[in-house]
């Protein structure tokens, strides 16, 4: 399946067909570009690592067939992303309410030196899948089982990592913030919680703010004094050659209850002035942060350094390092963040 117009962004893996636009479980839904074993669309029900399905609280307020879901970009790769997603909405249809969906992941030691996932559940567009981990870490991929978030949607992800557990969370493709039929803003809330002796690697793919979309992202992280965290956040303003939607994003991190990092970025139409000016983004279309929290940094803080012209590695006022970067596009942003991650180990 070729990459459709709907998701063309240089250097970004976007599920343009298959799972995007189709409710998982419709049959034939298959994520593109996923790791083997990830794309089995076994429905939106969470599967625990003992194979027991958890409560499949799927979203039911949106028709399942893509043919009747004109506000989702169609699963066909020929769908034009330049067409307003709601352009084909039947007249007289009731205004749809947004999708509300939540995913929950709990990781704890399995007692045999590995990591168990007693809670691994998602619904609607949020489908977490356990994949092969490495060593004693469990690995989960978030599969976008539906496109979005669209205007009016409200997504939430909660992750808890207990002491002694190691969890690596990624996503199979970039997330596209899209305009919605009902208009209004979409919300994506992420809550991460790492206990003493736990480790979380939160490395999702990019968030792409599509023209006309309006998304508020809130990421709140609590790390216990002995917890470890690697967190990456990348935002891409518009698909290739496209002006961005409205995007507001706030990342709040506490370590041992003390504020470590609080960063908010608002851009796109309607954002406070100067967001694309020389103090904030200066025309760069990709912006990202890589955060590492480790107890060792309290004793041995990292040394600040530049990573090229548009990225800096900065020790925070706490046991952590932040790499902040802007770049012309998603590919170059990933290059610099990957370089930083390799540098920090």
């Amino acid at each position: 399946m070729g990459a459709g117009e709907a998701g063309r962004v240089a250097g970004v893996r976007v599920a343009t067909g298959g799972a995007a636009g189709v409710r998982a479980g419709d049959g034939g839904a298959e994520a593109e570009g996923t790791d083997a074993g990830v794309a089995q669309a076994e429905g939106a029900a969470g599967i625990t690592d003992t194979g027991t399905p958890s409560v499949p609280t799927t979203v039911s307020d949106r028709p399942a067939s893509p043919a009747t879901v004109p506000d989702r970009p169609a699963s066909s790769a020929t769908a034009s992303g330049r067409q307003a997603p709601h352009a084909t909405a039947p007249t007289g249809a009731p205004a749809p309410t947004g999708v509300r969906a939540r995913a929950r992941l709990h990781a704890r030691p399995d007692g045999r030196g590995g990591t168990a996932l007693p809670v691994l559940e998602g619904e609607g567009p949020l489908a977490p899948r356990r994949t092969r981990g490495s060593g004693d870490a469990a690995r989960v991929m978030l599969v976008g089982a539906m496109s979005g978030p669209l205007g009016g949607d409200r997504f939430g992800v909660e992750v808890h990592v207990a002491g002694g557990a190691r969890l690596h969370v990624g996503s199979v493709a970039a997330t596209l913030a899209l305009p919605g039929q009902s208009g209004g803003e979409a919300h994506y809330d992420v809550r991460l919680d790492v206990a003493d002796g736990g480790e979380l690697r939160w490395l999702p793919e990019q968030l792409i703010s599509v023209c006309g979309s309006d998304l508020r992202v809130a990421t709140r992280v609590e790390v216990a004094p002995g917890g470890r965290l690697v967190l990456r956040e990348e935002q891409v303003l518009g698909r290739t050659g496209e002006s961005p939607g409205r995007l507001s994003s706030r990342l709040t991190v506490r370590v041992g209850g003390r504020p470590l990092l609080d960063q908010e970025l608002a851009c796109g139409p309607g954002a406070p002035g100067g967001w694309d000016g020389p103090a904030v983004l200066a025309g760069h279309r990709a912006v990202g942060q890589l955060l590492l929290v480790r107890p060792e940094f309290a004793e041995h803080p990292a040394t600040a350094r530049m990573l090229g012209e548009c990225a800096a590695l900065m020790p925070l006022a706490g046991p952590a390092v932040l790499v902040s970067a802007v770049a012309t596009d998603a590919l170059r942003l990933r290059e610099v963040l990957d370089e930083a991650l390799a540098l920090l180990g």
Binding site: A266, V280, A311, A312, A325, V326
Partner: peptide, 8 residues
């Protein structure tokens, strides 16, 4: 609110 280029 933050200005990435101010920090960098």
């Amino acid at each position: 609110a933050s200005g990435p280029l101010l920090e960098i």
